[in-house]
C-alpha cells in the first residue's frame, strides 16, 4: 500500500511540474486542448462504454457549450461562471432530445441519429448568423480571471487538472454504484435489465445527460481558453476524434478518456521526425487504427497493469485507480 502511495505521488508530481518543465507556452496550450477533449472523452466513456449508448455527435454538444458560454458572456454581459453554468445546462437540456431516439434505437441506427443531430446543430451554428456570426466565428471571448489576473496557459492547465480530477471522482462514484451497475446491465442486455426492474429510459437520459454536460463544460473551457470559436471546431470529424480518444484510452475503463485524449493529441507530434512532415498524420492515424482494431480494451488497462507491476497491487476492491 505504501508503495502505491509513492506511485501516486510521483504521478501527481509529474503533473504539477509539467507546465513548469515544459516552458513552451504553446505546448501547454495544446496540452490544455487535449485535457478539454479528455473531459468529453470521459463523458463518452460513461455513456458509450458503461451505458452502451453510442454517440457520434458529441461535437454538437461541444459547440453548443462553447457558443452558449461565449454568447451569454459577450451578449448578455454575464460573468463567465454563469456562462459555464448555462453551457452545461443547455447541453443537458439538448441531450434530452437526443436520448429520445435512443428509447427506440440502438447500435448503428442510434449512431446514425447522433450523426444527424451533430450535423443539424452544425448547420444551425453556421447559418444563424445574427446570433453566432456564422462561419466567421465569435471573437474576443474573455479569458477566465481570478482576483484581476487573467488566466494564462499554466493557470488553465491547473484548473483543468483539478476539474478533471473532480469529474473523475464523480463518474467513478457513479459507475461503481448501483447506478453504474444499472448502466452496465442495460448495456449488456437491455431486455434482461428491464425485466429485472431497471427503467432503461431513465438511465439512457442520465447517461446522455452526463456526457452532454461534460461536453458542454468542455466547450465553455475551450471558448474562454482560445478566445475565438468558429464552426470549424465542431464538425463531424471532431465527434469521431472524441470517440477515437475514448476508445484508444479504453472505452470500458474509467481512465480511458484521460489517457486517450493526450495520446491521440500528441501522437502526431511524436512522428514529426525531420523529413516526415508529410507522413506524420498518416502514421499517427495508422497507429490509432491499429490500437482500435487489435487492442479493443485500449491503453488504460495496460498502463494500470504497468503501474501495479511497479508499485504493487491494490489490496482491496477491484479495477480501481488513482483517487
Amino acid at each position: 500500500m505504501q508503495r502505491r502511495k509513492i506511485g501516486f505521488l510521483i504521478i501527481a508530481l509529474l503533473i504539477v511540474l509539467y507546465p513548469l518543465v515544459v516552458s513552451d507556452s504553446y505546448k501547454v496550450y495544446i496540452m490544455n486542448r487535449s485535457l478539454i477533449h479528455a473531459i468529453i472523452a470521459m463523458g463518452l466513456v460513461t455513456q458509450v462504454g458503461f451505458a452502451g449508448q453510442i454517440s457520434l455527435g458529441h461535437a454538437a454538444f461541444y459547440g453548443i457549450g462553447a457558443y452558449t458560454s461565449s454568447l451569454t458572456v459577450l451578449k448578455l454581459g454575464f460573468p463567465i461562471g454563469l456562462g459555464f453554468l448555462a453551457a452545461i445546462l443547455l447541453c443537458v437540456l439538448c441531450s434530452v432530445f437526443l436520448s429520445v431516439p435512443s428509447f427506440k434505437l440502438s447500435g448503428f441506427f442510434l449512431s446514425l441519429t447522433t450523426i444527424a443531430f451533430g450535423h443539424i446543430v452544425w448547420v444551425i451554428i453556421v447559418n444563424w448568423q445574427s446570433l453566432t456570426n456564422g462561419a466567421l466565428g465569435v471573437f474576443g471571448i474573455p479569458s477566465l480571471s481570478l482576483f484581476g489576473t487573467r488566466f494564462n496557459n499554466t493557470h488553465y492547465f491547473y484548473l483543468l487538472v483539478v476539474t478533471i480530477g473532480l469529474l473523475y471522482f464523480f463518474i467513478r462514484r457513479i459507475t461503481n454504484s448501483f447506478i453504474g451497475r444499472a448502466f452496465m446491465a442495460m448495456r449488456d442486455d437491455e431486455l434482461a435489465a428491464e425485466c429485472s426492474g431497471i427503467n432503461t429510459r431513465y438511465f439512457k437520459l442520465l447517461a446522455f445527460g452526463i456526457s452532454a454536460g461534460f461536453a458542454g463544460l468542455a466547450g465553455a473551457f475551450y471558448a474562454h481558453l482560445s478566445g475565438f470559436i468558429s464552426p470549424e471546431s465542431f464538425r463531424f470529424a471532431e465527434s469521431t476524434k472524441f470517440v477515437g480518444m475514448a476508445v484508444t484510452g479504453g472505452l470500458r475503463h474509467l481512465l480511458g478518456g484521460i489517457v486517450g485524449a493526450p495520446i491521440v493529441t500528441f501522437l502526431p507530434e511524436m512522428f514529426r521526425f525531420p523529413g516526415w512532415e508529410t507522413y506524420y498524420m498518416m502514421a499517427a492515424t495508422f497507429v490509432i487504427l491499429m490500437i482500435v482494431v487489435f487492442m479493443p480494451d485500449g491503453l488504460a488497462p495496460l498502463l494500470e497493469k504497468g503501474f501495479n507491476k511497479i508499485f504493487g497491487e491494490r489490496s482491496t476492491g477491484k479495477g480501481g485507480s488513482s483517487e
Partner: peptide, 8 residues
C-alpha cells in the same frame, strides 16, 4: 435462452 449480463 439464458440472458445474463456479459460483463457483470
Amino acid at each position: 435462452t439464458i440472458r445474463l449480463f456479459e460483463r457483470l
